[in-house]
């Protein structure tokens, strides 16, 4: 199982970074063009995921094992543990902000009866 993952990752090379860049650009584009607040929230979540993916990829080493000594024992190469810690922190932060953003959207919908950003601006006058 692990071997096949290693082989796949090796065969794609830097392509995974292009996926990250593509996701990030898509998300930024959507934030600017979308009018629906839920879709904006989704784009920000995608941006967050692309950043997390980027961090995990940075720590990947060819054929590396999990960096936990007592589970895996001594290994030739390990993937870097720091980016994984960074990613865990970033995921928790992203969870908090997404939840808060959705709750703000619920309140805005309650006040204005719409999810369209332009409509809200117009109603406010």
């Amino acid at each position: 199982m692990t071997d096949s993952i290693v082989r796949t990752l090796d065969s794609v090379g830097n392509a995974s970074y292009f996926v990250v860049a593509l996701l990030a650009v898509m998300a930024l584009f959507a934030v600017v063009t979308q009018k629906n607040m839920i879709k904006i929230c989704i784009s920000i979540a995608i941006l967050g995921s692309s950043v997390n993916l980027f961090l995990v990829l940075l720590g990947y080493r060819h054929g590396g094992e999990i960096p936990i000594y007592f589970l895996k024992g001594a290994a030739e190469t390990m993937v870097l543990p720091t980016p994984q810690c960074l990613t865990l922190t970033a995921i928790v932060i992203a969870l908090a902000t997404t939840a808060l953003m959705l709750s703000l959207i619920i309140l805005l919908h309650k006040h204005y009866g719409t999810l369209d950003i332009d409509e809200i601006r117009r109603l406010r006058g």
Binding site: L28, V31, G48, L100, L104, H111, R124
Partner: peptide, 18 residues
């Protein structure tokens, strides 16, 4: 509603920035 809207706007900008 203005407060929620200001919060949402601030959040959007700072999340992208972060």
């Amino acid at each position: 509603p203005e407060a929620i809207e200001a919060g949402f706007k601030y959040m959007l900008v700072s999340q992208i920035a972060a």
